[in-house]
């Protein structure tokens, strides 16, 4: 009791409970180290974020400035020039990249989507499902060059030569985890009600999957496919010693030939970037612009699709 009495204000200020509070002490003032520190750190973080974005703008600016100058119809239709030749283009590299991406997508999509259907339906304690998920996560961090090493050992040595097929296989290894994990998420997001309704109407599991699960999850699955394509198109390391490079169209006698060395945009950029010839370097920048546009458009298309997903 006595201590409480002492703490209470004595006489005149009895009615004012805030008498002893120093209001200046509560004010937010920049003169205090605490507040100043807070403001300074906020500024620091802002500056660091802007600095982190600097390279993005620099890359985009350089691509349009140096690559955009060189861009013309000829660049898309002609073959790469030899050492001191003027002009030329990288039509065969665009064709090669597209061919390998299409084959890699054809390999990956069935495996990825069907595995995802399996994963989404499996019980959490299913050992195989856990193994698939673990395998996909391991692949997410798999160095891209090792996919090339594998394709070299498994396909180039087996078939006896560098080929577009070997390149596609190497790229498909890197595309698989994106497609698989995104498709699983998309299928899991399908409302349980819809699945139960289908089962209630007597649909078999397959009918449920084809008529309810996959159509509903389609935007999500396509997002994954688009992101995987965007990643695959930009991969260089796995192509260096699987599809190698070629100065010619990926065809022999007018027919598409998948079993010969094939050019790709990424490898072309790598090869031409190190050359001492101005024309080649300019072509490398133009090819980089085309590649980045290809990747960005695919990426944005994928993101646009994901916003359409049923939630």
């Amino acid at each position: 009791m006595s201590t409480l009495d002492q703490q209470l204000p004595n006489s005149a200020d009895d009615m004012n409970p805030f008498a002893e509070v120093d209001f200046f002490d509560l004010e937010k003032s920049l003169r205090r180290p605490r507040t100043l520190m807070s403001v300074l750190l906020s500024g620091l973080v802002t500056v660091m974020t802007l600095l982190a974005l600097g390279p993005l703008f620099s890359v985009v600016w350089m691509l349009f400035w140096r690559g955009g100058r060189k861009l013309s119809i000829a660049v898309f239709t002609q073959l790469p020039p030899s050492a001191l030749e003027a002009g030329g283009g990288f039509g065969n590299a665009i064709a090669g990249t597209l061919i390998m991406i299409v084959i890699a997508t054809l390999i990956t999509v069935p495996v990825g989507v069907l595995s995802a259907v399996f994963l989404a339906k499996a019980k959490p304690e299913d050992k195989l499902a856990q193994a698939v998920r673990f395998a996909a996560k391991v692949l997410t961090g798999f160095p891209s060059i090792l996919a090339g090493v594998f394709a070299y050992g498994a396909i180039v040595l087996l078939t006896g030569g560098f080929s577009a097929i070997a390149g596609s296989v190497a790229v498909s290894i890197l595309m698989l985890p994106t497609i698989l994990l995104t498709a699983e998420d998309a299928i899991r997001m399908v409302p349980v009600k819809m699945v139960e309704a289908a089962i209630g109407m007597g649909a078999t599991e397959t009918q449920t999957a084809w008529m309810v699960l996959l159509p509903t999850a389609l935007p999500g699955i396509l997002t994954g496919v688009m992101l995987a394509i965007a990643r695959g198109a930009g991969e260089t390391a796995p192509l260096l010693f699987t599809s190698l490079f070629s100065n010619y169209w990926p065809a022999t006698n007018g027919h598409l030939n998948l079993m010969q060395p094939t050019a790709s945009l990424a490898v072309l950029i790598y090869n031409f970037a190190g050359m001492p010839f101005e024309n080649q370097v300019e072509l490398a920048w133009a090819a980089a612009l085309v590649l980045v546009l290809l990747v960005l458009i695919t990426n944005l298309a994928g993101q646009a699709l994901s916003s359409r997903q049923v939630r």
Partner: peptide, 15 residues
């Protein structure tokens, strides 16, 4: 910031 990840590494090399 996520776009930074979308740019292929060979383009970063060139840059």
């Amino acid at each position: 910031i996520e776009l930074l990840a979308a740019i292929p590494s060979v383009v970063y090399g060139l840059w």
